[in-house]
């Protein structure tokens, strides 16, 4: 794939880049991403799990042929895991090795050199020699303290290491933050970002996605799958099927050599779409495989 240049990117070229990378996106996704790139602001992507939030970062890395640096957030994530940490064990060994031979000052200088620094994703993105894509995944899983620290880094793109001083970014990375909406993010962070909400795709869009990602599926089957999944998402399930689960279903049906979505296929593959026992029970109670096939045929 031809490498795109960020300064000359247009909405149309970005759309083509996404398409080449196999990401079906319309203007409602392309325009905010384009704006984030051109305004050099982080993009905050929210939406239900599995709608393709994280994928956008991977696609950007592929479109601009650059490295993707990922920071996976979780409860308790702190600066040491996100920014940098000194390699204590290595420092201790060094102290033991040279304690009788080197001067105190030399030891200290040596111990806080680059070789003893464990770079974590944020520092790696800031120090990278070219513009990278920094993916901060599931930001809502961290706590507010970390969020406050993060929006400081994201506004100035510089960090301070006491032993070294301030380090400024060589290139401002393309920052993608994803959020599953588990909690409200702080206004400070949201203000610094371009916002994008991704909803579950329409039937037509999902059909396109199935055809691009699983080309072995025939048109009729792809349509059945898209309709079935769309119906499932309209129900009051705890966990609605995501796009990746749609694709799992499509791949499974290819393995079964299916031409249409039939009752037996639904029975065999329902676990690919619904991952919660209560949801499966509810499905059998409210509609069941036969009802779903009927519904698809009607539509």
């Amino acid at each position: 794939m031809k490498r795109e240049n960020l300064s000359s990117i247009t909405i149309e070229r970005l759309r083509q880049g996404f398409e080449k990378a196999g990401y079906i996106a319309e203007d409602d996704i392309i325009v905010p991403v384009y704006l984030a790139l051109r305004l050099e602001k982080p993009i905050l992507i929210t939406g239900a799990p599995g709608v393709g939030k994280t994928e956008i970062a991977k696609v950007l890395a592929s479109v601009f042929q650059t490295a993707l640096i990922r920071l996976q957030c979780y409860e308790g994530l702190d600066e040491n895991k996100a920014l940098y940490e000194w390699n204590y064990q290595r420092q201790l060994i060094k102290i033991q090795l040279i304690k009788d031979t080197a001067s105190e000052e030399m030891v200290e200088q040596d111990l806080f050199s680059r070789g003893y620094l464990l770079e974590r994703p944020l520092l790696r993105a800031i120090q990278a020699q070219e513009k990278t894509v920094l993916l901060i995944d599931e930001i809502d899983k961290t706590d507010e303290e970390f969020e406050a620290f993060l929006f400081e880094v994201l506004s100035d793109f510089q960090v301070s290491i006491p032993e070294w001083g301030t380090i400024e970014a060589n290139h401002i990375p393309m920052v993608v933050l994803t959020n599953n909406g588990e909690r409200e993010l702080s206004d400070g962070l949201k203000r610094r970002c371009v916002y994008l909400y991704i909803d579950f795709p329409t039937i037509e869009k999902e059909l396109k996605i199935i055809k691009v990602k699983v080309p072995e599926v025939n048109d009729r089957l792809a349509e059945d799958i898209a309709l079935a999944v769309h119906y499932m998402r309209e129900q009051d399930f705890k966990k609605k099927p995501s796009i990746s689960e749609t694709l799992d279903l499509a791949n499974a049906l290819v393995l079964f050599d299916a031409k249409r979505l039939e009752e037996k296929h639904i029975k065999d593959t329902i676990n690919l779409l619904l991952k919660d026992k209560e949801d499966i029970d509810l499905f059998y109670k409210e509609l069941g495989p036969f009802g779903l096939v009927e519904m698809i045929n009607k539509r």
């Binding site: 325009v31 704006l35 984030a36 929210t46 909406g181 203000r191 916002y195 909400y197």
Partner: peptide, 19 residues
């Protein structure tokens, strides 16, 4: 018009409820 709406939405809206 659509692009203008998307541009304003991307920069002024910060959560789905506001959309």
């Amino acid at each position: 018009r659509d692009h203008v709406k998307m541009a304003l939405s991307a920069t002024l809206v910060k959560n789905h409820d506001q959309q």
